[in-house]
Design a binder for these strands. Structure first.
Lengths: 121, 121
DNA sequence: TCCATATTTCCAATATTCTAGAAATATTGT
DNA sequence: ACAATATTTCTAGAATATTGGAAATATGGA
């Protein structure tokens, strides 16, 4: 996953309403949820919901499927998988996201430069 | 991890500069990187870097440690671990983030209501 | 065709976030 | 105490995101 894609996905979820939408979609599986139901459950004006769905779609986090007059929105599980993979690979130390087995230990506090040429109390 | 914490972490990383900062910190381990080095590497005005570090700190994604005049910034691996765990648990179908083994299959497109009382060509 | 339903797009007002200069703070060395 | 370094806080303007009413679009049915 590219850094730009990752940032888009992060931004997509980094909003209360959108995170709430996504969490409603997750248990709904591939069938998804009608947009109207989302608006009802989250008390959102139609235009507002539409705006956030557009954002989520833009980030590749949800897909849309029309059934008659109703548009079903569904979570794009692959996108989260990819985001989790990105975070694991790029924002952790490889696999377990530990401080890295071989990383330098925390040094004791001391100034970096100027090795002091002469001293004087 | 709480939803609010998760959103904070997501928002923290959902910005080009902050994601770049974090990615520079990851390989630096617990020792971290002097703020000045970050500013230099990313060509950021001191005040701008400080603003983003504040955001990252607020989100719990980085920590700060003073060594003389220099402030070392380090990645908070635990925070990413927690975020990944949150996404895995809440934005996936449990473990593998698959469309859920038991979720309903995608239904063929059809209108939801009004089961049609009479027909006519 | 005309009407009702479901949702989107358009648009403008509002809110939030970002940037960076300048001044302030913290620390060390002289 | 003073000067130099490293970084933050203050501040305000610029940029971007969010909200929702109203009009537009898509679909199905009478």
């Amino acid at each position: 996953m590219e850094i730009k894609t990752a940032r888009l996905a992060l931004a997509g979820l980094a909003h209360d309403t959108r995170l709430a939408i996504f969490r409603l979609l997750v248990p709904a599986g591939l069938e998804g949820v009608p947009a109207g139901v989302l608006a009802e459950q989250l008390h959102l004006a139609p235009a507002t919901l539409s705006f956030h769905l557009k954002e989520l779609r833009h980030a590749g986090l949800v897909s849309r499927r029309r059934a008659g007059r109703t548009l079903y929105v569904a979570a794009e599980y692959a996108a989260i998988n990819a985001l989790i993979a990105y975070l694991t690979e790029n924002c952790c130390q490889g696999a377990a996201c530990l401080p890295a087995a071989g990383s330098k230990p925390v040094p004791a506090a001391r100034a970096p430069r100027k090795p002091k040429t002469s001293r004087r109390a």
